[in-house]
Design a protein around this nucleic acid. Structure first.
Lengths: 144, 144
DNA sequence: CCGAGTACGTTGGAAAAACCAACCCACAGG
DNA sequence: CCTGTGGGTTGGTTTTTCCAACGTACTCGG
């Protein structure tokens, strides 16, 4: 059997953020956590794994580790511009969870758009600006 | 140290699709693969793990397993309506990969919107329909 | 000065998950 | 028969993850 593994952008993205805890770390940073202890507390992940994920995110340029204290040396984690461009992925997951997996008391986190309404993301076409309905997008070409 | 794990929709979504290979399986189904052998070939994942992921997706109602042949028994996998609503997550990952991690020969998969242009997803606000710029969305309330 | 507490990890060992090659069954075609 | 296809399952190895404990470097209160 040939091994025609599809080298696609989804696969490449998953290599960066596809392992356990990584996207929860990114979520935490989006929500404003900066310090290691906050990330531990709010994600609930094992400290060693979270350390590993933060180093990996840093190595890939999604996060920077900034010293905010000399003695003892203390660091903060910040999303880079590249890291912030993971926003749509987090938003899409949040939206999916809100709609289909919400707990008893609804979505635990609410966002507000500058138009004043509660923010629910939908996908739009960058070219025409129209909100996309299912069936309006098709594969144009599939290269191996 | 208190364990104030954030019970958010992102975390809940990751419980469904957060383990390795799951989202690649979903991508394959979006791209039209239906049979087990196709999923093995195009994702490159281990057969036993892919079996496990398909069963898990089925158990959560994201995928259905349909018999298309009696003797010998053969099955196809299809995304359910719920499964198709993972589209924005896949699209967001594809977009991230295309923009920041593209291989030498550009994005390997292209999509086309019904407006005629190549499709690149951007986030829009469901309420007002406007495309969202960074800084326009803020946390309205954060419940532990 | 002593002990407790905070911040940010690192370590060692156990448990779980992933991986891989090989196997199995049912059938089809030559 | 003998080979090939489709859709898995099995057994054993390797990798990851998990967890609790420890270490370091300071600060604060008494």
């Amino acid at each position: 059997m040939k091994t025609d593994v599809r080298e696609c952008s989804v696969a490449r993205t998953l290599e960066l953020v596809g392992s356990k805890w990584t996207l929860l770390v990114v979520r935490e940073l989006f929500l404003g956590s900066r310090r290691f202890e906050e990330i531990v507390r709010f994600t609930g992940g094992p400290r060693d794994i979270l350390t590993d994920r933060l180093r990996s995110l840093e190595a890939h340029g999604l996060v920077t580790r900034v010293q905010y204290e000399q003695r003892p040396p203390r660091f903060e984690y910040h999303l880079t511009e590249l890291g912030r461009s993971l926003g749509p992925i987090i938003a899409a997951m949040r939206e999916f969870g809100d709609r289909h997996l919400a707990g008893e008391d609804g979505p635990p986190l609410r966002f507000e758009h500058s138009c004043g309404a509660e923010f629910h993301p939908v996908l739009a076409c960058k070219a025409c600006g129209e909100v996309v309905r299912s069936g309006e997008v098709e594969i144009a070409a599939a290269v191996s």
